Amino acid sequence: MFAPQGPTFRELAVQALSSVERGYDLLAPKFDHTPFRTPDAILAPVSRALRRLGPFDSGLDLCCGTGAGMDVLREVCRERVTGVDLSAGMLAEGRARAGVTAGAPSAAWVRADARALPFGPVFDLAVSFGAFGHFLPRERPGLFAQVYSVLRPGGRFAFPIGAPARPGSPGYWALLGFDAAMRVRNALWRPRFVMYYRTFRLTNVCTELTRTGFDVRLQDLPELGRRPDGSPRCRLVVATRPA
């Protein structure tokens, strides 16, 4: 499906009936040939916005997968970048794809649960792309507290967030149908596979980040266009741990 090099329908079905960790282990070799990888059209504007905020010394890619966000960190960090993910398969693919580039910051790939990060406050920047649907709303305060704990004072946590699909639009019904299917699947099948697209809402997320202690600012990403009412299609959330 998706591309000749991508997973087959059967492979996707097996993944969907696995746990999140096992599912991504299975998908890892073909993940970059699916639409689940964050596209370069989003990564590039985020990278440009972060360059205006930086430079940074050390960066963390939360739920890094095969390393799309690691590429962004390499552009804005001077010393070292770290990717953390629960899936050993995704980490192996990312490590193999990245290789070693002269003059680039050193890179580490760490298998860990984002809800229990094995680091102290050593990062100047944390990013994440497309992973928040794997966390239930009740888990987000703990997740944000973990990110806060690994940032140095003045460190930033940044991620893009798209505007919600207009009610009644094809995108709205597609996301609603996907989330409904996942809820039915998780009610009937174990282990669960948590992936809900409609639970990560900007207003709620900003409130939770503020309660964690972050100073939250929003930046438009005009390269990604505007909605008919003039509002941006995508914003960059920049949450700063106070100095």
Results as ranks from 00 to 15, higher is better:
F2C: 06
P4Y: 13
R10H: 15
S19F: 10
S19T: 05
V20I: 12
R22H: 14
G23H: 05
A28C: 05
A28Q: 07
H33Q: 12
R37P: 05
R37W: 06
P45R: 08
V46F: 08
R48H: 13
L50G: 10
L50Q: 08
L50M: 09
R52W: 04
D57E: 15
S58N: 15
D61M: 00
D61E: 11
C63H: 07
D71M: 09
V72C: 06
R74N: 10
E79N: 08
V81S: 04
T82Y: 01
V84S: 09
D85V: 09
L86Y: 02
L91M: 11
E93V: 11
G94M: 01
G103Q: 07
P105T: 02
P105A: 04
S106A: 15
A107I: 00
A107T: 11
A107R: 04
W109C: 05
V110G: 04
R111E: 15
A112M: 11
P118Y: 13
D124V: 03
L125W: 08
V127D: 07
S128Q: 12
F129M: 03
L136A: 13
L136M: 14
E139G: 02
E139S: 05
P141W: 02
L143Q: 06
L143K: 02
L143N: 05
A145V: 00
V147R: 03
S149W: 00
G154H: 08
R156H: 03
F159I: 12
P160T: 08
I161K: 05
R166N: 02
S169P: 08
W173C: 07
A174Y: 14
A174C: 09
R183A: 14
R185S: 04
R185L: 09
R190A: 14
F193M: 13
M195R: 14
Y196Q: 10
Y197T: 14
L202E: 15
L202C: 05
N204E: 15
L209V: 11
R211F: 00
F214R: 07
D215R: 15
R217W: 00
L218T: 01
L218G: 01
Q219W: 06
L224N: 11
C234A: 14
L236I: 09
L236G: 02
V237T: 07
R241P: 04
R241K: 15
